[in-house]
């Protein structure tokens, strides 16, 4: 490689991502989220001290894409599994990567109690308002009126209940130190998301307790939209229901920002 070629190389794959194509659909924001997390792991020099916990859903194969040690949890149980890993290795960086069906439905008990314990782990929570892997069923996060394969007439809150605002709910727990929501719909928000991911991991490495970053994400395939339309829908509909913001920043965390 010549000097000139090196000069022109401004964008490379993070070391913490493996050099393989993912199984994610074109336009899916999982790729963006993976990359941001991997960049932060690289920047913080944590690649050889990280143990990830994959969940069930589209991100079940996250362990194929992160070039770090990984384990894969039963549906919803990633925070419990991460607790087990972290309690044996308190000095490692242990993170879970979970979708909204996994975390906010079947895994609600595990996430609430991991947060309540102030478990010193980091959770990346991808909210795309549906069960992606199984083909787009209604999730706890599906918006009122949103059509999915199991709410074909649109989510009727009278019979199917209301969406759960996870970040706001977990922020109420004394054990949670850093709980924020960010979005992946445009470059500015992606940069802000990366900053939050960095802070969340800093919180853990400084032993400050439970951190969670909810990332508003798109599912063009199951939403029946092009990626561009999906990003627009996220910005217009999802951000209105799930406002971007910092819901819990413990004073000790505020100092490191």
């Amino acid at each position: 490689m010549t000097i000139n070629e090196l000069d022109s190389m401004v964008y490379t794959r993070p070391d913490s991502l493996t050099d393989v194509s993912t199984h994610y659909c074109p336009g899916c924001t999982h790729g963006t989220a993976h990359r941001l997390i991997a960049e932060v792991i690289d920047e913080m020099g944590l690649k050889d001290r990280t143990i990830g916990v994959a969940s069930v859903g589209c991100s079940v194969f996250a362990y194929n894409y992160f070039d770090t040690d990984f384990v894969q949890a039963p549906h919803g149980r990633a925070p419990a599994m991460a607790t087990g890993v972290k309690r044996v290795y308190p000095d490692r960086m242990v993170f879970t990567y979970q979708g909204d069906g996994d975390l906010a439905s079947i895994g609600m008990a595990e996430i609430v109690h991991a947060a309540a314990r102030g478990e010193n782990i980091t959770v990346f929570f991808l909210n795309n308002t549906n069960y992606g892997m199984t083909g787009g069923q209604m999730a706890p996060t599906t918006l009122p009126g949103q059509v999915t394969t199991s709410s074909p007439n649109g989510r009727d809150v009278e019979t199917q209940g209301y969406p759960i605002r996870t970040a706001e709910m977990l922020a109420k727990l004394d054990g949670a130190s850093y709980v924020v929501r960010r979005s992946l719909h445009d470059p500015k928000n992606i940069r802000l998301a990366k900053k939050a991911i960095r802070t969340a991991i800093e919180v853990q490495m400084r032993g400050l307790g439970f951190s969670l970053v909810e990332l508003l994400s798109i599912c063009p395939t199951n939403w029946g939209k092009t990626p561009a339309e999906a990003l627009q829908w996220l910005e217009e509909k999802m951000v209105a229901y799930y406002p971007i913001g910092d819901y819990k920043v413990h004073p000790a965390v505020a100092e490191i920002k």
């Binding site: 949890a73 419990a80 991460a82 309690r87 595990e110 109690h113």
Partner: peptide
């Protein structure tokens, strides 16, 4: 449910 999954993680 959580206890056995904590065991699962630690067993790894």
């Amino acid at each position: 449910v959580a206890a056995i999954n904590m065991v699962y993680g630690a067993a790894c």
